[in-house]
């Protein structure tokens, strides 16, 4: 499979001379094109810092990041890199530029100097892919949090990126908004083959991912399928993370002496496992 993002021994520091903190410690990873990767970590684990390296908002102090083969420290490639990797941020209010939904979605294509006749179809298609086409003439401040975040995603989609990095896109949303956004990005991954990198600290959002990377203190402490990562309950606890509710339930049952599989992640799997045990 094609590798879309490749990090080689990346180090990053924050702060000035004396009180510098090392936010990323020798990170190396490869992300396959078309995959759905969740990056999990508590506050200050370096996950957002890593995300900002993926589209050249930050550049590594040591090491290299390659996006589709392009070196992110090369200033001339910045626009191409940002066209390839789009980014959605935490607060939907602070990333919407225009006062009309469709104008905001057009912002990216306008920036890259796309021809006028091509912008409109792209904007419409992007809005349809996130289910916001009917609201295209609304003012963003009249929308709900989940809708605003979907507009922000449409703004990225309109650039036709190969990869979207979402930095805690659901942190400021209510449960229904959270579901809207998570369903939307899963659909984009499935239907359009767009690589998704979802940064989050909600365990439950990582369940549908192909791959789960756990970060703590600037380091990758676990990397694998969600099932294999979540079976290591003790390791996650040490990293200050909880596990999905289903895993928690089975973990507690196991401690009571019931032999249940820890990799039953979805609610259905969990229910089936428990049913089989006690039926």
């Amino acid at each position: 499979m094609n590798v879309i993002i490749k990090a080689e021994n990346v180090d990053h520091w924050y702060g000035e001379d004396d009180n510098r903190t090392r936010a990323l410690k020798d990170i190396s990873l490869e992300i396959d094109e078309g995959s759905f990767v969740a990056v999990l970590g508590h506050n200050g684990s370096g996950k957002s810092t890593l995300a900002k390296h993926f589209n050249a908002i930050l550049t590594p102090e040591l090491g290299k990041i390659y996006v589709a083969g392009m070196d992110t420290s090369d200033k001339d490639l910045v626009i191409d890199i940002r066209r390839t990797v789009g980014m959605v941020f935490q607060n939907p209010d602070n990333q919407i530029v225009a006062s009309v939904v469709e104008d905001d979605v057009a912002f990216g294509p306008e920036n890259i100097g796309m021809e006028q006749s091509q912008i409109r179809p792209r904007v419409d298609a992007a809005l349809m892919s996130v289910g916001m086409y009917e609201m295209r003439e609304h003012a963003p401040h009249m929308l709900s949090g989940g809708q605003k975040q979907r507009v922000a995603i449409a703004g990225v989609i309109a650039m036709r990126p190969r990869c979207i990095v979402l930095d805690e896109p659901t942190a400021m949303l209510d449960p229904s908004g959270r579901r809207e956004v998570i369903n939307t990005i899963h659909r984009l991954n499935r239907d359009y083959g767009i690589t998704i990198i979802l940064i989050t600290h909600h365990m439950n959002e990582t369940v549908g991912a192909d791959r789960l990377i756990v970060m703590s203190d600037g380091e990758i402490i676990a990397d694998g399928s969600p099932k294999s990562v979540f079976t290591r309950v003790d390791m996650l606890r040490r990293a200050g993370l909880s596990v999905p509710d289903t895993t928690q339930l089975i973990y507690l049952l196991r401690q009571e002496g019931f032999d249940l599989p820890l990799d039953a992640l979805t609610v259905d799997e969990c229910a089936a496992a428990i049913y089989k045990k006690f039926a």
């Binding site: 990333q95 057009a106 294509p109 920036n111 100097g113 021809e115």
Partner: peptide, 27 residues
């Protein structure tokens, strides 16, 4: 100020680089 900072980052990551070479959807 915090909003302005975040907005600037968001605009940059959507390839904003000033008015040069910019087109408009609604002419």
């Amino acid at each position: 100020f915090r909003r302005a900072d975040e907005l600037a980052t968001a605009m940059e990551s959507r390839c904003y680089h000033g008015g040069e070479g910019r087109t408009k959807m609604k002419q």
